[in-house]
Write a protein that binds this DNA or RNA. Structure first.
Lengths: 348, 348
DNA sequence: ACCGATCGCTAATACGCATTAGCGGCAGCG
DNA sequence: CGCTGCCGCTAATGCGTATTAGCGATCGGT
């Protein structure tokens, strides 16, 4: 751990240009305030030396002195590039990077965050959070206690995905699941469905809650609209359960579960969508092999990433005002798995 | 741009624990040298206060004072998460993240690097390079001048992919393309091929050069082994050219080009591999729809990322010694596109 | 009882930059 | 000629931490 060799500093530049270190700093920051004037020839001389030496300010010192350094932290509650969550995080990062590049920010990925009780923690002994001007939070579930702390510390941040209040409103850029599911439910009713079942994953995440809320709101005119949990049963057992209930359509939270249900339904003699309609409530987050285009909606992940950075920069420089919470619309996907009920072919 | 609110500092901790700031620092860094002793009860008292306040050292100040901060810079010569290069960078990042997490490092992505003359530049007015202890360079082609500068500045770095010297040896973790192509060429000769053609992309990148070198070395016993450039001709024209030359096998640098050639060959009445064998020299970097398993090799991208971080940590703490250059073997893929020549079916 | 050696801690300084009060010089004005 | 005001710049200070020299106290030895 030998310290790195000494680099060129502003003092060096100052000496070479025959000015003071302060002048170098002023020139570098292009300060042209009324009370800080630098003669054009002096400025040019300093810039000349800077160009010759290829000097660039030490970002750590700059940050320490000024409090800012144009770095945006990115915290992922799971590793950012795992094969498993690959298709989940990637679009977000795509948008985040794009906007960060546009506004000239670097990205600091907090990969060092240790895992405690099965999830990553922002706050730990050696967190480098404060190296960033603010940070973006990614993850299906985010610990409320950590949000609380971020709020308390007044650390600028934006969550990707809607979050409940945590000692104050949580800035976020989310997807409007409630509205999307609502519209899908109405469409099912329009097609003649009267008994609907929502198959959830049994998680407490806001994203899950919003979908259920949308389902509930959209099925007000139904004969029956119940909610069950996928993990409790196998796909085949779930299909049996649906038959027993008389449901003609399922709204499935998890894409892979929808795929499994669809094939289980057909296996049991039900056509899709005639015998059973299957609506998915989100893009696949893990690769699932299927040729079917499911009816559902598309989550604007990339755009969420972009806007998260946009909102964050607003939060950082205090210009955000009240609009620190955004819900982006989801585009509905006209798939092949939602249709008129009653054309079931039951071969049992 | 109002400065962020004052945070808890070591001075605050010191006051609360009734010790000096220096003591807090010593406790925090767990210093147990012979010439620095802290009474256990004092240490506990300080740790107690630290735990209560949830204090974490300011990384900028820490970096300024010590010269290190466990941050690894990642520089990509193209945006890191674009759809186009998606499958190219992702595996590297996967490995990089994994190893960084293991050694407790954060990753700093230099997304702010501006584009000059069509490529990103590491060194620019406002680069945050020195915020990291070292950095990893990703990209098909890396500017030699920037490598030179890194060497001159003695900034720790590791390139992913072999690089030619640039004012001294360049630390890298690359894939052994030369050996892989060499072996494939020998295999072609073994199968009876006598006239071979290498279809390159006409780039000056080391990776490209290594493949050609392997091709050259592996085809010493051939009747003809020539090299042409793909971009000069359409796939159909290239196939005509191959026929005219009497080539029975093509070694194709770019995966997408290989896909195009294969279908062009079949379109022109050649069977694959009987009429024309097609060997690919790298994994697809952009999604190309094909059902064929091409004969070629696999680039250990993920492992390259991992080992790049490993080598970098060695370079940073000076323990790397001479082993700062690694070439990882590529696993050959037994596909369906390399076979015995002469069984061509020419329907022309 | 005196001296040297440890022990436990602190004061002081450096790290490189941003910021501000203010200094010397010069011009303009009366 | 003296005063005011502006111009161009610098000295000084702070940001929060790591590091080191060294101080007072205690202890062991003779």
């Amino acid at each position: 751990m030998t310290p790195p060799p000494r680099r060129v500093t502003q003092r060096d530049i100052a000496r070479m240009a025959g000015v003071s270190q302060a002048t170098v700093s002023l020139v570098l920051n292009n300060r042209t305030d009324a009370d800080v004037r630098i003669a054009p020839e002096t400025r040019d001389r300093v810039l000349q030396v800077i160009a010759e030496t290829g000097y660039a300010a030490d970002p750590a010192a700059r940050r320490l002195a000024s409090g800012f350094n144009r770095i945006i932290g990115v915290f992922t509650y799971e590793p950012a590039f795992p094969s498993g969550s690959r298709d989940f995080f990637h679009p977000f990062l795509l948008g985040i990077e794009e906007y960060a590049e546009r506004v000239g920010c670097d990205l600091l990925l907090f990969t060092s965050a240790p895992v405690v009780d099965g999830r990553r923690r922002i706050f730990h002994q050696d967190n480098r959070l404060r190296l960033a001007d603010g940070c973006i939070l990614l993850g299906r579930e985010i610990d409320g206690a950590e949000l609380l702390r971020l709020n308390r510390d007044r650390f600028p941040y934006v969550a990707v995905g809607r979050r409940d209040d945590a000692g104050g409103p949580v800035p976020y850029v989310g997807a409007d699941y409630a509205s999307a599911v609502h519209r899908l439910a109405e469409r099912a009713l329009d097609l003649g469905h009267r008994r609907l079942t929502y198959v959830g994953m049994g998680t407490a995440a806001e994203s899950s809650h919003d979908r259920r809320r949308g389902f509930h709101a959209g099925t007000a005119g139904a004969e029956s609209a119940r909610q069950i949990t996928a993990t409790a049963l196998t796909a085949d057992a779930t299909v049996d359960d649906l038959r027993a209930d008389g449901s003609t359509v399922v709204f499935v939270e998890d894409f892979a579960t929808a795929v499994a249900l669809e094939s289980a339904a057909r296996r049991s003699g039900l056509t899709v969508p005639g015998g059973l309609s299957v609506v998915t409530l989100g893009d696949p987050t893990v690769p699932v092999p299927t040729d079917i285009t499911f009816t559902g909606f598309r989550i604007p992940r990339e755009e969420m990433g972009r806007q998260a950075v946009e909102v964050l920069t607003g939060v950082i420089d205090g210009s955000a005002g009240g609009l620190q919470q955004r819900l982006l619309p989801c585009e509905l996907v006209e798939g092949d798995t939602l249709g008129v009920p009653g054309s079931a072919v039951d071969r049992r």
